[in-house]
Amino acid sequence: MPTPTQLNHPDISPEMVPEIDGIIGAHYRTDGAVIPVLRLCQDIVGYLPMELIDYISYGLNLPRSEVLGVATFYSLFSLIPKGRHTIKACLGTACYVKGIKEVMTRISNEFNVKEGETTSDRRFSLEAVRCLGACGLAPVVVVDQDTHGGVSASQVKSLLEKYD
């Protein structure tokens, strides 16, 4: 394997590289830095391509297996590209009792996307998440930063239309 000293990936633009270098540099000597570094890098690129994982492990001087192990353990990190909009359907108990299952099925059928996947036009990523703590509003769907409460399956289409 060549030493990953350069970041060549279609989803990582040249402007992102100094930012990523800055993050790695700032955490280089800190114990337990892998999780914050992965989080900050994911914030920049949108997800964690394998080339970036290699680059981070080289930068932090950690085995590739350890960094990849952490990246795959936590649900926050994604190794596949994300859509322009992320739909998070809450699968907490309250939402479940109030019918989030029907809402999820409707989203899947309407936009032809399965849980954990991204639509082919990269418009939506559909995620099932654990309790968002907004049980008073159940069932809850979060699109990007907007929380929508009391969602029913029949509202799905009109709700998602505005996210292009």
């Binding site: 892998v34 999780i35 952490v70």
Partner: peptide, 22 residues
Amino acid sequence: QGAGAFVCGEETALMRSIEGKR
């Protein structure tokens, strides 16, 4: 900040996580 793992509510797992491990 945690990174989304239910088991990290268990005390020894939480400490591992702060140490930057699985």
